[in-house]
Structure formats: structure tokens, C-alpha cells
């Protein structure tokens, strides 16, 4: 089987895991949650194998490059990092309700890659502008950042829901305590911010080595900076003005909207970045 095949199957494994996490949370059952963790781990293994296999395939085709250069490949890597970071957090904090909010994001990323008719999964050779080691550094760091922000987004929604929980028996009470959600969100945002910064920086260094300018205000660059401004606002509001809880959660949601726009929305704007709409 080729890598696209493995990744298509992984999409369904992720769907199953996401469903089990939600089921376990809504029906307050522990067993489906445990199964969900196993299924999610199998999915992650599939995702990683698909990624590596695609790398090998590109060598067999005589193209030989890391699978990180178009929309399909970036989505596959995005799903991989979300699943990986989520599973690490689940191990550390031992609460599977987070899976109901984080894991569907990994599923959606991979489903969009595998199922959308607009996204080609063909392994294509690199156009000259993308032949640079900075490309790999740039894509890897950006997507680690995006994945951290994605999970922070899921946790922020949990936080906002959790605050509305009134009755003791509510399924929302199964969430981690608000204090923990708040702290964890912030930790993820710091991780994301560090990697977003490195992502923007490696992008700038790459642009400088390819075109002789490190910054050109093209829409993709500008939107990544807008995202950076939003999260920078969040960090200052929290460190200096003592913002916590709900306001941070909302800023985190706004920040993730900016991330999504940087990733997908920019293709709708006039501009010349490398991931065209057809990927």
C-alpha cells in the first residue's frame, strides 16, 4: 500500500478515536476513553508511518525530498503534531475529556487532506523556489506552533463551557478544573508562540536567501505577524495585567482564528505564497 492509502485509513482511525473520546465524555464512561487512547495511538503510528513512507516514496520516484512542501503534506504533518502533543498531555494530566475537544482537530486536518477533492496527494517535484533546507525548518516549526495553538483552542472552549457548568452531575464537571485548563492553555500558547516565532524567523531567513529580502509584507507573512501580535497581546495581558480565565480563553480563540486564516484564508486573498489554493 502507498502512503496515501495508509493516511486514508488513518483518517478513519482518527475519526474512531475522536468519536470514542466524545462518547466517553458524554456518557461518562471510562472504558471507551481507554479504548480511545489506544485507537488514537494506533492512528498516530499510522500517521507517522504514512509520513515516513511518503518520504521514502519520493526517493523511489527520484524526487527525494521531505514531505513538507504542499497543502496535502502540511495537513498530514499538522494532524501528526496535534495527535502527538495531545497524547503527551493526556499522559501527563490523565484526563481524557480533553480528547473530545483536541482529537477531532487532528481528525479534521487529516480528513481535509485525504478527502477534499481540491487537494492533490500526488508527490510532485519541488519548484526552484522551494528547494531550500529552510523550507523544512520553516514548515516543521510553524506547524508545531499551529498544533499547540490548536489544542489551546480546544482547551479554551472547554474552559468557557466549564464556567457555565452549574449542576454537580453535569458532563462539564468531568473536565479538568478550570485552574488546570487555564494553566495548560497558557503553557500551550507559550509553546506555540515560541514555535510561531521560530517559524516566522526561518521563513524570513529563507526569503532572504531566495529573494534578497527577509520581509516583504506579502499577505501570508503579514497574517503570520497578525497572529503573532494577537498572541503577544495575550501574553502581555496575562503577565502584566493579570488576565486569567475567560478573557485569556477568548483571546486564545481569536488567536486560533488568525492561525486558521494564515493557513487557509490567505489563499483567498491576492498574493504569491507557495501553497496555492490547489496545493
Amino acid at each position: 500500500m502507498n502512503s496515501s492509502g495508509i493516511l486514508s485509513i488513518t483518517t478513519f482511525v482518527y475519526a474512531t478515536a475522536a468519536f470514542l473520546y466524545i462518547f466517553a465524555w458524554v456518557f461518562k464512561k471510562d472504558f471507551p476513553g481507554k479504548v480511545a487512547t489506544w485507537v488514537a495511538s494506533v492512528g498516530l503510528a499510522g500517521n507517522i508511518s504514512g509520513f515516513i513512507l511518503r518520504w521514502i516514496e519520493s526517493y523511489q520516484m527520484g524526487i527525494g525530498r521531505a514531505p513538507l512542501s504542499n497543502l496535502y503534506e502540511s495537513l498530514v504533518f499538522f494532524a501528526l503534531t496535534i495527535a502527538l502533543i495531545y497524547l503527551v498531555i493526556e499522559q501527563k494530566y490523565r484526563n481524557r475529556t480533553m480528547g473530545a475537544f483536541a482529537f477531532p482537530l487532528a481528525f479534521l486536518a487529516l480528513a481535509y487532506a485525504s478527502l477534499s477533492p481540491n487537494i492533490s496527494d500526488r508527490i510532485q517535484p519541488l519548484v526552484p523556489a522551494l528547494k531550500s533546507n529552510w523550507l523544512i525548518a520553516h514548515v516543521v516549526t510553524c506547524f508545531i506552533g499551529y498544533a499547540a495553538f490548536a489544542i489551546a483552542f480546544g482547551l479554551s472552549i472547554m474552559f468557557i463551557l466549564r464556567q457555565r457548568a452549574k449542576t454537580e452531575g453535569s458532563i462539564l464537571k468531568r473536565f479538568p478544573e478550570p485552574r488546570v485548563l487555564d494553566e495548560l492553555t497558557y503553557q500551550l500558547i507559550m509553546l506555540g508562540f515560541l514555535f510561531l516565532s521560530i517559524g516566522i524567523i526561518t521563513g524570513a531567513v529563507w526569503a532572504n536567501s531566495a529573494w534578497g529580502r527577509y520581509w516583504g509584507w506579502d499577505p501570508k507573512e503579514t497574517w503570520s505577524l497578525i497572529t503573532w501580535f494577537v498572541y503577544s497581546t495575550l501574553i502581555h495581558a496575562r503577565m502584566m495585567r493579570g488576565w486569567h480565565g475567560k478573557r485569556i480563553a477568548w483571546l486564545s480563540i481569536v488567536g486560533f482564528m488568525a492561525v486558521m486564516f494564515t493557513y487557509f484564508g490567505v489563499n483567498l486573498l491576492p498574493g504569491l505564497h507557495s501553497y496555492g489554493a490547489s496545493g
Partner: peptide
């Protein structure tokens, strides 16, 4: 700072 960062964004 917060006002400027948001305005720039």
C-alpha cells in the same frame, strides 16, 4: 502595549 499590539494586528 496591549492597545498598540491589537491596533497593529
Amino acid at each position: 502595549t496591549v492597545a498598540l499590539l491589537l491596533t497593529l494586528a
